Amino acid sequence: MELPINPPVKPMLAKPVAAIPPGQIYEPKWDGFRSIIFRDGDEIEIGSRNEKPMTRYFPEVVEAVRANFPPRAVIDGEVIVADTARNTLDFEALQQRIHPAASRVKMLSEQTPAGFVAFDLLALGDEDLTEVPFGERRARLLEVLKDAKPPVYVTPATDDLETATRWFAEFEGAGLDGLIAKPRDLIYQPDKRVMSKIKHKRTADCVVAGYRVHKSADNRIGSLLLGLYDERGVLASVGVIGAFPIAVREELFAELQPLVTSFEGHPWNWAAHEDGERTPRKNEYSRWNNGKDLSFTPLRPERVVEVRYDYMEGVRFRHTAQFERWRPDREPRTCTYEQLERPVQFDLAEVLTSR
């Protein structure tokens, strides 16, 4: 490639803030794979946060770029998968698209096709736009993709705080992840947290039903496994918490030893596991850390912890939850899905087609 900016390039990042800052340009925060896409004629590369190309995993996006991008351009955005039946983003299906087998890549590109939501223009032709203010880059992006057809989209944006506040409440129902705020005069700064992100924060009381030890020592807690009781009275796995200081990890390990039990009679008893049950899986391995053992030590489900979480994806927390406080006053059986706040459904297509 011979572009003004050539891969790999790390994307510009955002830092979390508690409230929507006034006087900026606001965009929905998309829940996908962040990607800078480079096109130089027939050469196309789909970049990623870790600078490794994702081109081979998304052949349908490559074709969409060829059909919709200018002949020579560098555009920042997000690769997404939409669940048309539920009318929401589907991050789990997007994760499944990263597969080593070419035959499966081809099959998934047809079964769960991805799209690309553009939100910044870094280069056009021989012109490097990274030193141009964001407000101007945004206007140029709208111009060059004005005739783009799905699955290539331009993210909606507004400079109206009231509209942004409404988006923050409504768009979560379409699977979006909050808001991004950008100063109008912001130049593009790779790998710098110079934008702001505003995300939904909620709490839930969860049952602690197991733990994994920390990689540094066998007497330190690595993460606690969280559960909620479903409508059948079955304890379902909803996620983990794991951000503890070393001293706390050791204290927790000692505190939890009296609760260690066998899998016999445990809610997540492997022997009683039924296909489709929402429990952790014995000897499960992480797709992202090949060979990492995700088995755990079972605990009697007697302790309750309050955690902070962003939002649910299906029946689980979308991201790792954060410790808030212990709840000795709560009875574990009262920790059910009914306590969770459910966002009002919103039409994903309306978000995608609005500029």
Results as ranks from 00 to 15, higher is better:
G135D: 13
S262D: 09
P298Y: 13
S354K: 15
K182G: 00
R184W: 09
T158P: 00
T279R: 12
N269I: 00
R287C: 00
V248I: 13
R86P: 01
P70S: 11
A114N: 08
L94N: 06
I180D: 03
R39T: 00
G77L: 08
R308A: 14
T336I: 00
E251F: 02
W30K: 04
K106V: 09
D126C: 07
Q345G: 06
K192S: 08
R97K: 13
V105K: 12
L141A: 09
R318Q: 08
I46A: 07
V152W: 02
G32C: 04
K146D: 12
V117G: 03
D185G: 04
K199L: 02
E78A: 05
P150V: 05
V344C: 04
F33Q: 09
L122Y: 10
E143R: 13
E350H: 14
W288S: 14
V194Q: 15
G178H: 10
D275W: 09
V240Q: 04
D191H: 15
D205H: 09
D147V: 01
I75D: 11
I80P: 00
C335H: 09
T165W: 02
A114T: 01
N68F: 13
G115P: 03
P258V: 09
V305I: 15
K282R: 15
T353K: 08
M195H: 10
